[in-house]
């Protein structure tokens, strides 16, 4: 394993701009944005503001679809999922802050299908940090980093709604 600690983390605001530019061509397909709690939900909301228009916006809390429930139990703070539009035959842009093992995305896709059969799902992430354990890839990526398994990358949002990235070193 040759992963190295990046000298500096990218500016999250620039990554938002990069995602916005990549997503704009998809708007003709009448997509809907769905963010995964918490960071992905913030990001989806922000992307809708940046993209303008009235793109439908939803949020998923995948606590009921996690594959580690038997090991760690239910998350103590679940938030209601909220999909206020028809998923059936819709192009869904699934948004998350950090793509790692792919397990969260699997849970999110399982949950989405319980709302209906989407026409297509595009995955958009701010950062792809590598380390996949499932055959899942993002189509729209702000930045690619190689982080160590013990490291944890977190998206922060300040009082003015500005994003930044923070790296936590594992124990």
């Amino acid at each position: 394993m040759h992963a190295s600690i990046p000298p500096s983390l990218p500016d999250a605001e620039r990554l938002v701009d990069a995602l916005t530019a990549q997503l704009r061509p998809l708007l003709g397909q009448d997509p809907a944005l769905v963010g995964i709690h918490s960071g992905g939900a913030w990001l989806a909301q922000r992307l809708r503001d940046e993209l303008g228009g009235d793109i439908p916006l939803g949020a998923l809390d995948i606590s009921f679809y996690r594959d580690d429930f038997k090991r760690i139990g239910l998350h103590t703070q679940t938030k209601p999922s909220n999909i206020p539009f028809e998923v059936e035959d819709r192009h869904i842009i699934l948004v998350d802050d950090v793509l790692y093992t792919g397990r969260t995305i699997r849970g999110a896709m399982n949950e989405l299908f319980d709302y209906g059969r989407p026409a297509r799902i595009t995955l958009a992430v701010l950062v792809d940090r590598g380390g996949r354990e499932l055959p899942i890839e993002a189509q729209v990526v702000g930045a690619r980093l190689h982080l160590l398994p013990g490291q944890n990358l977190e998206l922060l949002r300040d009082g003015n709604g500005r994003f930044s990235l923070k790296l936590h070193e594992g124990s």
Partner: peptide
Amino acid sequence: EREVKKVPL
């Protein structure tokens, strides 16, 4: 309130 009223927990 969803179409599929089940979760796999």
